[in-house]
């Protein structure tokens, strides 16, 4: 339906542009210039502002033609040519505005669908770790449950060291996230990696002692295929009191 409408609009637009050829040459050239100029301008603005631009052109052009008729004493049949010229330009501009509106709506829809998919996606397709929204959602539920059970929980934050070459970071991230997923308890602890430099691991029902066991196990496993003697990540750990606050602090640091 949408495709058909767009095709129809293109055909109509072509038709109105083609009909300009029937007008005296000077009108046709002015119209083509105005339509092309509008097309370029419309690329940069929202639909409503674009309508304002189109309406302004239609009105200013109409008044200019009326003024021209007044000054040149066109008081009889000559006015029909001016009216036809104005109607053709108006039709071309309005159809162009509709085409740009439809294409922009499509782009906007595509963008919002992508955002929605990101929100709904539970796993990162590349690393198989949880997506950030999913990590937060599950993390907050776990936090509430731990509070009720009066248990401790730990959040581990890994940030890649500056010494690691930029080219190797993405591969290292994949390997490290994979190692994390195999090291922590499946369906119990959570892993996410919002970008190629950071990895978060949430350990539920774990104290400081349990946390160092996890880190040691991770370091050992990583050594199997990685040349670094020490873990190529800086580690920070937090006791979970308010996961939301901790994550907001990270967001602020990233923003700064």
């Amino acid at each position: 339906m949408f495709k058909k409408r767009l095709y129809l609009l293109f055909v109509l637009w072509g038709l109105t542009l083609g009909l300009q050829a029937l007008l005296p040459e000077s009108y046709a050239s002015i119209h083509v210039m105005l339509v092309m100029l509008s097309l370029v301008i419309m690329m940069f603005f929202r639909t409503k502002i674009n309508f304002l631009i189109v309406l302004s052109i239609i009105l200013v052009y109409g008044f200019s033609l009326t003024f021209y008729a007044q000054m040149n004493g066109i008081f009889s049949g000559g006015q029909y040519v001016l009216i036809a010229a104005h109607l053709l330009l108006t039709a071309s501009l309005l159809i162009l505005w509709l085409i740009v509106h439809d294409i922009k709506s499509l782009v906007e829809e595509n963008k919002s669908l992508k955002e929605r998919i990101m929100l709904l996606e539970k796993f990162d397709l590349n690393t198989k770790a949880l997506s950030m929204p999913e990590f937060m959602e599950r993390g907050l539920i776990i936090e509430t449950a731990m509070k009720r059970r009066r248990e401790q929980g730990r959040l581990l934050y890994f940030r890649v060291k500056d010494s690691v070459p930029v080219e190797a970071r993405n591969s290292l991230r994949h390997y490290f996230v994979n190692t994390c997923l195999h090291t922590v308890r499946e369906e119990f602890d959570l892993v996410t990696s919002p970008d190629q430099n950071e990895v978060f691991v949430l350990l539920q029902g774990t104290n400081a002692e349990g946390e160092s066991i996890v880190i040691n196990r991770l370091t050992e496993k990583l050594r199997e295929h990685v040349n670094y003697i020490e873990l190529p990540y800086n580690i920070a750990s937090y006791e979970i009191g308010s996961l939301k606050n901790i994550m907001e602090q990270f967001d602020q640091q990233r923003g700064a």
């Binding site: 239609i58 033609l65 008081f75 009889s76 001016l82 104005h86």
Partner: peptide
């Protein structure tokens, strides 16, 4: 006629 009456009418419509 001493003015483009038709154009003025047309612009009122527009």
């Amino acid at each position: 006629y001493a003015a483009p009456i038709l154009m003025l009418w047309f612009m009122s419509y527009i």
